[in-house]
Nucleic acid binder design. Structure first.
Lengths: 222, 222
DNA sequence: TTTCATAAAATTATAGATAATTTATGATTC
DNA sequence: GAATCATAAATTATCTATAATTTTATGAAA
């Protein structure tokens, strides 16, 4: 009973909307109307506005004064930008987390990798992938850094879902295994190097548009 | 006339409060009471709450549901964390900005350095320093990265102001000049290396506490 | 005194209502 | 028929009011 009340209505709304934006249920550029959202959640628009502010800070929505807020759009340039930022920050985090990694953590991370390899849809792959990254980075004990990485992960996931919304081919994550291998050896710098290359790998995939022509879509797949 | 209305009340409040927090007028841990703030700005507490949310996202305030919001506190560990993040992200930004730097931009950056050297108080030094960093990084044309760096700068500035609130000794910024020198030569990697070391330099300074004993305070001075 | 329970005050969080602004609609003119 | 302007509808931003929660103050019992 307390757990439910731990959280404010605004937070709950922002979490759910964030999920919808990330998974692509809410498309880039879509208008977020405070009254509609308020009605859906059975709340007034005050907490809704606060939720919008949080989404704005996370880079998932953009707001123009007096004109309302829209789901943030994104392009290839931003995909690259986010990938570069993640490479730097995750590298930093891993360098500081590595000395505190236990073999039980690494085993858990390996399980997450296996779960990712066996995922039959994007959603569960993304979840497993995120779990892997969180597991090996959290011991750095830098809350601000981890929060920043989390936000970038969310944006990465948007790209991923927009490209691989329905179809998803099973694949084996060699990078994750290489990282774990180096970490087990205590070879931190090699682990960091692979991780930094890994998160910058931008997947490319031809997609049929409604008109029949094909175009390439991109997504971070690390 | 339009410029004043470009901005929402919530944004104006959050900007002013952010400045107070950064400069130390509002001390770490201080309670931010929405009704009081609302009254001061002649507004209701709805925009005040939105301003609080923005401060929270910037890491300048922390909010506990149903218990209100306080000015975020910080410790040496966080100083280090922010310095490390700045090093990585500013390095990344400079690497991508360098190819687009013109000699006129570098001249402006040099002027900012001179202005910093001649500053007789922390506030104007901080402003000049921030101008320097912005000038050489903005051409990277990565909005999300620049926004993240800006937020980290604000937090750095808090540390700075808390340590050097009143007294400020004039000093010459050799790092800035070295960076400009390398950039003028087109030696990007050396410029990045100096910058990354530069922003990680944590100043240390003995301060007399009210009891008479002295303790060391720390601040990023880059 | 100290501790605990209770009551009062202060404060937060949400809801409902109002004013101001933007977007949509349709008539009028060129 | 396209463009422009005026009007209406929708939507946002804000304010006032109410309910719920937490903190502070008060006083009785150990």
């Amino acid at each position: 009973m307390t757990a439910a009340n731990e959280d404010t209505i605004a937070n709950r709304i922002s979490r759910i909307l964030a999920d919808r934006i990330v998974t692509g249920q809410l498309e880039p550029g879509a208008k977020l109307r405070q009254d509609h959202v308020a009605e859906e959640f059975g709340a007034s628009h005050v907490p809704v506005r606060e939720a919008f502010r949080k989404l704005e800070a996370q880079g998932l929505a953009v707001s123009e004064p007096r004109r309302g807020v829209r789901v943030a759009s994104f392009d290839l340039a931003e995909v690259r930008e986010v990938a570069l930022m993640r490479a730097e920050l995750e590298g930093l985090a891993l360098r500081h987390a590595a000395p505190h990694l236990t073999s039980s953590i690494l085993d858990e991370a390996e399980q997450a990798t296996v779960a990712g390899d066996n995922s039959r849809d994007v959603r569960s792959w993304e979840e497993a992938n995120r779990r892997f990254h969180r597991l090996i980075l959290t011991p750095c004990a830098m809350p601000r850094l981890l929060a920043a990485i989390d936000d970038l992960h969310a944006v990465s996931a948007r790209f991923l879902f927009s490209a691989w919304r329905s179809e998803w081919e099973v694949r084996t994550d060699h990078d994750h295994r290489a990282i774990l291998g180096f970490l087990r050896q205590g070879n931190i710098e090699n682990a960091v190097a692979v991780l930094e290359r890994h998160v910058q790998w931008i997947g490319q995939k031809p997609v049929k548009s409604p008109t029949g022509s094909t175009r390439d879509v991109f997504a971070i797949v690390g």
